[in-house]
Design a protein around this nucleic acid. Structure first.
Length: 618
DNA sequence: CTTAGGG
DNA sequence: CCCTAAG
């Protein structure tokens, strides 16, 4: 009772502070800039920085309900925020994140996150959403102003970094830049910003973020081609300015009245500045746009012109998000538990899902979507179901224009997309992000490294391979948990088949016969949790193809010759010819066994369908 | 869930 | 790899 926490409205849920360390209130606004895959230590920051856009100040009632904070509280918080800001320069660390730091360090505490986030998100009803929305609207511009004030002295520098700092510091390189360039060619000027400001970043993340999100909030949409268009500091905000001028001469009381006139409610706040800001916001109507006016594109916040019914759109958006969150959260919790339960993955992997929720959740790729009739962009993460169902949906619309109407009304009164979402809830795995796969350096490096080791390290010695397998298991075990938890956004990481795997596969086929993939997987691939039977099958198919295509005629040719041929042909995939030969052998043998000797072999090892023939008599 | 096959 | 049909 009486505790105030940040509730993240706009994106993923992980961010509730688990310790309400400050007895008073907390308020923070951050903009998410999707974290690239970072190092372990930077993950913390990533989480912070990747926290999606908006936090709303709420009060947690005794029963767990969330009640929008009062103006007084907001103001209080605002002061704290300012204190924070001023303190940042000197003492650095933000109190907000202390809890998180420790959590990061102590995996055991992760449950705090989960518990909190889940309970809180599952209980959001539309009413509260509305309230939250309102506060979002209110908050965004406000923080923007804060930023403006703070930034004004050094606008030049900051204006260039504001968008960039985040990913530049999280990851030395800027993988997403290419995408962004494509998507936002007008914004390229910002991307050239020097990363020197990164030094500031630690203290600045939050502020930067706030600015990032607030900048576009009520900046002219038309100025996207200029740096200042996205960065508030260098661009005078006329609307606010005007408001300030007008309100400057008013007394507190007058301000309060103005506030009431603007917002239609009383306020007890006596802070002149605060009142002015609030009123200004109300007057400039800038609060209508925030949540829907900008969209996250990759690491960047992008302005989008959405003029019609912004609030409605935003509401729908939030509702959708909310529902998505609850479902997604629980799903991930399940998977997380599952992993930690019986999986052989290392303990390290157990915390991953949790962290990924943060770093991965807001992946901020966006897509054009028609939501309730309005064209807005929503982050991909918020969409669970994609592709086929959607296609069907469209198809339905296309081919049964008349019939779709009633259908829609029946299934999804307000928000068709929502319906689709819930429908696809059980298929999280299938969600993808076709256009933009966010690069994950760690992943790739890991995989490639291991791959290289395996391939060039040892070809034929099973022991060596076993070792590789073991190591592979570790890395893969971790990696395996990752994609699943990446919001299902990501396509399953492409794992190049190592030689060891191939050998195991071949061996397995030799032992159990081709086609018994699940068997092979269970026995021969026990250590590779990530290779599914389908994978085995596919790989075998490829091997077969390769082995046949390679050289059907030179069966008797020495390995060296074929090897040379092979490596020359496929420099990138040097599958040793011996293996291919063996594959072919097995293939032939298998085809034979299947047709003629098959039953004997299968029954021989399987032992359970031995009686198949005679069962007729029973 | 497992296989097989197409994409 | 993904997806789906089929058992």
């Amino acid at each position: 009772m009486g505790t105030v926490v940040d509730i993240q409205v706009d994106g993923e849920k992980e961010s509730e502070e688990s310790d309400f360390g400050k007895a008073g209130v907390e308020f923070s606004m951050r903009t998410a800039v999707d974290g690239e895959k970072g190092t372990e230590e930077s993950d913390f920051r990533k989480i912070v920085a990747s926290d999606p856009v908006v936090y709303q100040l709420v009060r947690v009632e005794g029963d767990g309900r969330l009640v929008p904070a009062t103006d007084d509280e907001v103001m209080e918080v605002e002061h704290l925020l300012e204190e924070d800001k001023s303190g940042l320069a000197s003492d650095g660390d933000k109190k907000h994140f202390d809890g998180r730091v420790s959590n990061e360090g102590l995996p055991s505490k992760k449950s705090d996150f989960e518990g909190l986030s889940q309970s809180e998100n599952t209980e959001v009803d539309s009413q509260e959403l509305n309230a939250r929305l309102e506060y979002i609207e209110v908050m965004l511009p406000k923080v923007k102003q804060e930023e403006r004030l703070r930034m004004s002295p050094e606008s030049a520098n900051h204006s260039t970094k504001c968008m960039d700092v985040n990913h530049q510091t999280f990851d030395g390189r800027d993988e997403t830049q290419a995408c962004k360039d494509k998507l936002q060619p007008e914004n390229t000027s910002m991307e050239t910003a020097p990363s020197s400001m990164a030094l500031n970043d630690r203290q600045g993340v939050q502020l930067e973020s706030a600015e990032t999100c607030s900048g576009p909030t009520n900046q002219a949409v038309t100025s996207s081609s200029t740096v200042s268009g996205t960065c508030t500091s260098s661009m005078p905000d006329f609307s606010i300015l005007k408001g300030d001028i007008c309100l400057d001469n008013l007394s507190i009381r007058e301000l309060q009245e103005a506030f009431r006139a603007t917002f239609g409610r009383q306020t007890s706040v006596k802070d002149k500045l605060w009142l002015k800001r609030r009123i200004t916001m109300g007057l400039t109507n800038s609060c209508d746009v925030p949540t829907s006016n900008f969209v996250m594109k990759d690491n960047k916040i992008v302005l989008k012109e959405v003029k019609e019914e912004p609030i409605q759109v935003a509401k729908a958006y939030i509702e959708e998000l909310s529902e998505f969150e609850t479902r997604e959260c629980s799903a991930r919790l399940l998977s997380s538990v599952k992993n930690s339960g019986h999986d052989q993955s290392s303990p390290k992997s157990r915390i991953r899902p949790v962290r990924d929720i943060g770093s991965r959740g807001p992946s901020f790729s966006t897509r054009q979507d028609s939501l309730g009739g309005f064209g807005i962009q929503v982050p991909y993460v918020s969409r669970v179901r994609r592709g086929r169902p959607r296609k069907n949906f469209v198809t339905l619309m296309n081919y049964h224009p008349g019939g779709i109407g009633p259908n829609l009304v029946k299934t999804a009164p307000g928000i068709p997309a929502l319906q689709q979402n819930s429908e696809g809830g059980s298929r999280v795995r299938k969600a993808r992000t076709p256009p933009m796969l966010i690069p994950q350096p760690n992943f790739v490096d890991e995989g490639e490294k291991r791959d290289a080791e395996t391939i060039y390290g040892d070809d034929e010695h099973d022991l060596g391979l076993e070792e590789f397998d073991a190591s592979g298991d570790n890395t893969d075990g971790n990696a395996n948990t990752e994609p699943a938890s990446k919001c299902g956004v990501r396509r399953k990481h492409h794992r190049a088949w190592t030689l060891g795997e191939v050998l195991k596969l071949v061996e397995g086929v030799a032992r159990y016969g081709a086609g018994r993939w699940s068997e092979i997987r269970r026995l021969a691939f026990a250590s590779y949790s990530y290779r599914t039977s389908v994978d085995l099958k596919d790989k075998w198919r490829n091997l077969l193809r390769a082995s046949l295509a390679q050289d059907p005629t030179d069966e008797g040719v020495g390995p060296l010759a074929t090897l040379a041929k092979n490596s020359r042909k496929h420099a990138s995939v040097p599958i040793p010819t011996p293996i291919l030969s063996r594959v072919r052998e097995l293939a032939e043998m298998n085809s034979q066994t299947c047709t003629e000797l098959g039953p004997s072999k299968i029954t021989g090892h399987g032992g359970r369908n031995v009686q198949e023939k005679g069962s007729g008599f029973l």
